[in-house]
Nucleic acid binder design. Sequence first.
DNA 1: GGCGTGTGTGGGAGCGCTCCCACGTAGGCT
DNA 2: AGCCTACGTGGGAGCGCTCCCACACACGCC
Lengths: 340, 340
Amino acid sequence: MNGRHSGRPTLEEVAVRAGVGRGTVSRVINGSPRVSDRAKAAVEAAIAELGYVPNRAARALAGNRTDAIALVIPEPETRLFAEPYFSDIIRGIGAELADTDMQLLLTLIRTPKERSRFAQYLAAHRVDGVLLVSVHEDDPLPDLLEQLEMPAVLNGRRSDLESVSYVDADNVGGARAAVSHLLARGRRRVATITGPTDMYVARCRLDGYRQAVEAAGLGVDDGLVAGGDFTEEGGRRAMRELLARRPDVDGVFAASDLMAAGARAVLREEGRQVPDDVALIGFEDSAIARHMDPALTSVRQPTEEMGRTMARVLLEEIAERASVRRHVVLATELVQRDSV
Amino acid sequence: MNGRHSGRPTLEEVAVRAGVGRGTVSRVINGSPRVSDRAKAAVEAAIAELGYVPNRAARALAGNRTDAIALVIPEPETRLFAEPYFSDIIRGIGAELADTDMQLLLTLIRTPKERSRFAQYLAAHRVDGVLLVSVHEDDPLPDLLEQLEMPAVLNGRRSDLESVSYVDADNVGGARAAVSHLLARGRRRVATITGPTDMYVARCRLDGYRQAVEAAGLGVDDGLVAGGDFTEEGGRRAMRELLARRPDVDGVFAASDLMAAGARAVLREEGRQVPDDVALIGFEDSAIARHMDPALTSVRQPTEEMGRTMARVLLEEIAERASVRRHVVLATELVQRDSV
DNA sequence: GGCGTGTGTGGGAGCGCTCCCACGTAGGCT
DNA sequence: AGCCTACGTGGGAGCGCTCCCACACACGCC
């Protein structure tokens, strides 16, 4: 099976059948405007009759491109992913790529060895562009991509001055909305459980908290800010800390649903009712939020839309020669449930 | 940038540098034994000095293969995925592929149009093999794959007589263990909420339920079997039905965590305590299970291991010419929490 | 010594495309 | 009429590999 010469039709055979030259068939396939309607129709008919599908490898070889982009997922992150996030973003990317004949390559990076191997891949131009999710500030990959002039789009950004193109959610706005909501409902001692502050996204959510508190004419009380690490256990610890420092806390904005779940568990242990004694808001609107008791009010990110946008931006960047960096920030939305 | 002749070294340049012919370099790269140690060392040195990375497209074109496999995800399924499942299985596949230079292509199939387009891809031999998750019994893809003699591995199977290679979890055994556990804890009226019975996986879990009930010397009471559809709302409906028919039910095995969550909500509404009045077990051990209140006892599937195994089986199938079908069933495990 | 057999090697041919040059042919201008 | 500019077109060259044939050379055997 699968012998040296498989029966699959080639561009040449299409040309013969259509009674035109190879060049013309190639032009039709690639949508060149420089083809007469007559020739175009003949070629299209021949393609349909023969069931011709262009050979990707040959195209790539001759055209010096790959028609493939890589979706890079740093492994440690996979674990942390609030779960629907992962598949939602993939769905968005897939949707945007569907009409293209761009292929999506999945690349998991676990170890430094794999990272350097991937760097080799990039240097060898095995992909036309790269989609990078969940970048850390110390990740060397974005800089490498920039240096190689490889089109790339990050999901999130490393800092305010991110130079590589990115698509991010409005973390500041989302956090601000959440905290404002708490304050508007009459909560006066609203605390926050932050993510690891060496992550930009965590700092953004903390900024949103601060902005909302200040906008309400209150001062930010450092006793009401507890550091978490985006994990459930971190949420627990932070909540205990908060309760110890400010027993009269009546509202908590956790920078992730998982931390909110941890906080909620501690509140239960301590006999505090949610939302009566303490109102609680998370971030991400994950499956966990919907299944908590009471169901958790949370900030939703337009995850699928982010995936879609990332793909679109990357395709644009690949299409144009010059590398204009694009920065897109998508709005977040407060999903109200029963924890406020 | 990225001009016609990029500076990347070619096999030919490596050959010149090593003072050997193209053929010898090719042999070294592909691990042929028919190379003298001297030549091999020279070539390897040249490769290292030049930072040579083989051109994939050229290889694919000349060798009539692609070094790529497709992971196919039927879109409607993504939504249903108990969430960690998705990323776990990908992680397993990635781990197995890491040492290979096989690429993983992600293919989402949403519409019939996309399905037929993918069929074209397959016919054009754009991948060396296919990994298919979550197949329905009426899915035409497996048969197509078989017909094309394309190496393929399913995650799960369509029926007992599945002809295509597959890797599946021991659904029957897992369900049996869950129900036996309930019976061993003294529950006498143990019900089950099934998945859609046109899905083989749902039938397997129902079989496991039956086997456990019969093994306990009890007869299967049809009144204790309610049909769900793997969704939370389906679990709700089924639980209401069950309560109406058998108000004295004291144990429920739900064929998915999501349905268990639905059932749990109804039980709460009806004032039944879990686990005191009704013990509850789910299937999948998803994030939801861990975050339910009380935390849900559930049957865990070795998801990452399944991904790993799928990849391994596929690679084997690609490596050998003949198509020997492989069937692997991996053990499941009951994870005990607080709902029993 | 002649003949086989085996092992390592070089390099031609070709995979199926895209790129681009060269060649008509038709139309617009002076 | 003569020229210049399009436009549409055919096909050569070449992308970087793998495959495989042919050859050289080192053995062993009769």
